[in-house]
Structures are given as C-alpha cells and as structure tokens.
C-alpha cells in the first residue's frame, strides 16, 4: 500500500516519528497505570489468582461462541444490507435505513426488560441465542452505517461494467463487494468482536446457566459488597483484553497484506 503521508527526507521522517510518539503518550499513560495496578500487591500472583478461578475455561469458551456467532451474523447481514442500500434500487430507501438506525439510540438499561420478555417468548432465554441475537441487532445499525458509506466509495462503473458483462447481482456482490470491502470488513469484525466480547449486562441477565457465563463476569470474583480487590480486577481485565488485541493485529495484518498484494487494485 502506498503511504498517504510520505516523508522522504530524514528530518521529515524524524519529525513524524516524534509527532507520533508525543501523541501516543496520553494514550499510553493510563495503560501503564492499569498494568502497574494489575501487578501491585501480589504481583504476578494476581494473574495466577485469575487463572485459578475454576470456570475460566468455560468463560472463555462461552465468550468465543457468542463472539464468533455474533460476528458471523453481523458480517453477513451487514454486507448484504449495505450493498443493498448503497448500490441497489429500493423505494423509500432512507426510511428503512433510518428505521434501522433508530434502534441504535435506546440505552441498554432500557432495553433489558423488554429484551428479557422477547427472549422468553422466542424460547431462547438461557441459551446463547438470547445474547447473540440482541448483540447482533444492536451492532448491525452501526456496521451498516459504516459499510454503506464505504461501499458508496466503490465506483458505480464497476457494477455497470459487470452488469453489461451479464453478471448477476449476487455474482457482483461476491466478486466485487466482498473483496473490495475487505478493509472495512476487518474493522467491522474487530468492532463486533469488541461489542460481543465485552458484553456484560446482556449475558448477565439473559443467561442463567453457570456453564454459559462469559469472561466479563470474571472481575466479580474479586469485587464484593465490602471488598474490592482492584489488583485482580485489573489483572482480569488485562487477560480479557489480550485476545481482542491479538485478533485486531491478525485482522489488520491480513487486510494490509491483501491490499499490498494488489488482490483487487
């Protein structure tokens, strides 16, 4: 990929490097305080204590299942809908679009009670679906908005050309939209992962089975009514965050390689 910002001289390179470093400090500072906190008291023992929480494996398994299912649903539905909104003909398109976006505006705490009733009625209460479906529904307005804007940037000429070549809509979707939206898809996957991995209230309320609890419930082993072991809460947070950061790096890498190899361009 060609840099959007190019420093050819050494002095310019140096200035860029210093600028980036200065800008990063405020972001780094709280993270350092956090990691420091997670190592206070019993030091590495805090991490050991988190790993010794019996159900850690189960928690991770549940979170992985919930996140992967949510990502799949969100990705597929978002791409289809964003393509529809951006490049296909729909009467009263904007009304549908805003109806979807309106769902983004309710605070989670207000959603909880009605969602509880809905999941019970759907018969999915106390299953992964009870969390996956609402999570996906809450994520999709956001991802459609982002993806639609991105697909708007794909030249119409490409689709017209494909149509002249006799390709069907799905073929165009499959061979133009899917590969060309790889950068935004990576972002969508990462953001959905964060949304579902960090979901706290929904699994807490909608899943009762202890074998299906998620990693976000980890800190509560160290927080109670009259005590609050901050060091282990922070250690749990670090452990919970690592899979997300790794996923981000992998996806980012994948998407950058895809671009530089000229897969589409």
């Amino acid at each position: 990929m060609r840099p959007v910002f190019e420093a050819r001289r050494l002095s310019a390179k140096l200035i860029l490097q210093i600028l980036a470093t200065l800008m990063i400090i405020p972001y780094l500072f709280p993270l350092i305080v956090m990691v420091q906190g997670s190592l206070a008291g019993e030091g590495v023992g805090n991490y050991r204590a988190v790993f010794e929480v019996g159900a850690l494996g189960t928690f991770f398994k549940s979170s992985v299942i919930i996140s992967v299912s949510t990502i799949l649903i969100v990705y597929v539905l978002t791409m289809l809908a964003a393509f529809g909104f951006s490049k296909l003909q729909i009467r009263r398109k904007e009304i549908y679009f805003w109806m979807i976006l309106a769902a983004l505006t309710l605070p989670e705490v207000v959603l909880l009670t009605p969602l509880f009733a809905t999941t019970l009625a759907l018969g999915v209460y106390d299953t992964y679906w009870a969390v996956v479906l609402p999570l996906a529904a809450l994520q999709i307005p956001f991802t459609i908005l982002i993806a639609r804007r991105f697909i708007d940037g794909v030249p119409d000429a490409l689709f017209d050309a494909a149509r002249i070549d006799g390709a069907g809509t799905f073929t165009a979707f499959r061979y133009i939209v899917v590969p060309m939206t790889r950068p935004i898809a990576a972002a969508i996957v990462v953001l959905t992962l964060i949304g579902s991995w960090n979901a706290y209230l929904l699994p807490l309320v909608l899943i009762q089975d202890p074998a299906q609890q998620t990693v976000t419930l980890l800190p509560q082993f160290f927080v109670s009514q009259f005590s609050n072991d901050q060091t282990k809460v922070l250690a749990s947070a670090v452990i919970t965050a690592i899979p997300e950061i790794v996923a981000y790096l992998c996806l980012q890498g994948l998407f950058e390689r895809g671009l530089s190899a000229g897969a589409i361009k």
């Binding site: 649903i73 597929v76 539905l77 978002t78 289809l80 809908a81 393509f83 529809g84 909104f85 490049k87 296909l88 003909q89 729909i90 398109k93 549908y96 109806m99 979807i100 309106a102 769902a103 309710l106 207000v110 959603l111 009670t113 009605p114 969602l115 009733a117 809905t118 479906l133 609402p134 996906a136 529904a137 809450l138 999709i140 307005p141 459609i144 017209d160 149509r163 002249i164 809509t169």
Partner: peptide
Amino acid sequence: RVARPSGLPWILPAFILVVGLLYFCIGET
C-alpha cells in the same frame, strides 16, 4: 441509464432482525 435490481431482499434480513427484536423494546418504552 442502467436499471438496477431491487435491493429489498438484500436489506430484509438485517431489517427484520433489528426491527423485529428492538422495536418491541421501543414500543414498550
């Protein structure tokens, strides 16, 4: 110039999931 196919079936799954699941919440609220 080029007539475009209808996008309705494309947006419908997302629309139904979002509207179906969350509009009950809006109505209730």
